[in-house]
């Protein structure tokens, strides 16, 4: 039975290339070509295939055992909190943070300790709710999948909770980062039952990635 490694489309995929190579994994070349319509790619290992899915879906594929291994941002793991997913390795790639941001002109103007509720645009509803609940505030989530930075300016929400890498998108849209919820980096994740029932194979791949981290 082959092992499926799930990789996320987008920014992490580029960073993962050299790491895969150091771990001795060479998928068919068009795996990194985002315009390719293929989704499943064989590798130089006959027992290992790579699939390319949306970053949030990597965790889902691995949690349900459709893929045994995956690479996925810790933001996704924190948001979904699947108990069936183990995250044995911090791969140190795709580093960024999840932050609260608000319009530059409003920053510091509101006393949040007096607020009961606040409207937040985010694709991380669970994390955003948890973050504000810890401050005693109900977060009303406006679910968006992109262009979060537009939300406060157009009156959709007071704040946003989103990934911040350099901060330039925030700046370009007149927002400032006011709170960091968590630091994010990409993790190697494995399915719990796969690790328990195929400890040698899965363990060998974890080991290969661990070695790839310390050149």
């Amino acid at each position: 039975m082959s092992i499926v490694l799930a990789l996320p489309k987008g920014r992490i995929l580029k960073d993962a290339g050299p790491l895969l190579a150091r771990a001795g994994i060479f998928p068919e070349a068009d795996y990194a070509d985002e315009s390719s319509r293929r989704m499943r790619f064989p590798t130089n290992h006959p027992g290992l295939d790579v699939i390319r899915v949306r970053s949030f879906d990597v965790a889902t594929f691995v949690a349900f055992g459709a893929a045994q291994i995956g690479i996925c941002g810790s933001d996704v793991l924190m948001e979904f909190d699947y108990p069936e997913v183990y995250a044995p390795l911090d791969l140190g790639i795709g580093q960024c943070r999840i932050s609260v941001a608000e319009p530059k002109d409003d920053a510091g103007q509101t006393d949040f300790t007096r607020a009961s509720r606040i409207r937040v645009a985010s694709k991380y509803p669970n994390m955003a709710k948890k973050h504000f609940a810890a401050k005693g505030i109900q977060a009303e989530i406006v679910p968006l999948n992109g262009a979060m930075e537009l939300a406060p300016g157009l009156g959709l929400s007071r704040l946003i909770v989103d990934l911040v890498q350099t901060g330039s998108t925030l700046k370009a849209n007149g927002l400032v980062e006011t709170d960091v919820i968590a630091q994010v980096s990409s993790r190697l994740i494995v399915n719990r039952i796969a690790l328990k029932t195929r400890p040698d194979e899965i363990g060998a791949w974890i080991e290969a990635f661990r070695k790839a981290l310390t050149p």
């Binding site: 793991l77 108990p83 997913v85 183990y86 995250a87 044995p88 390795l89 911090d90 993790r187 690790l195 400890p199 040698d200 363990g203």
Partner: peptide, 28 residues
């Protein structure tokens, strides 16, 4: 719970090394 060795090392305090060894001692 998540077998996250990096986070165990970060949060494990004086027990971090031993907990790391326990994580490594799983499998067959």
């Amino acid at each position: 719970d998540r077998k996250d060795s990096a986070a165990v090392a970060a949060h494990g305090g004086v027990a971090a090394a031993l907990l790391g060894q326990l994580l490594d001692a799983s499998g067959q």
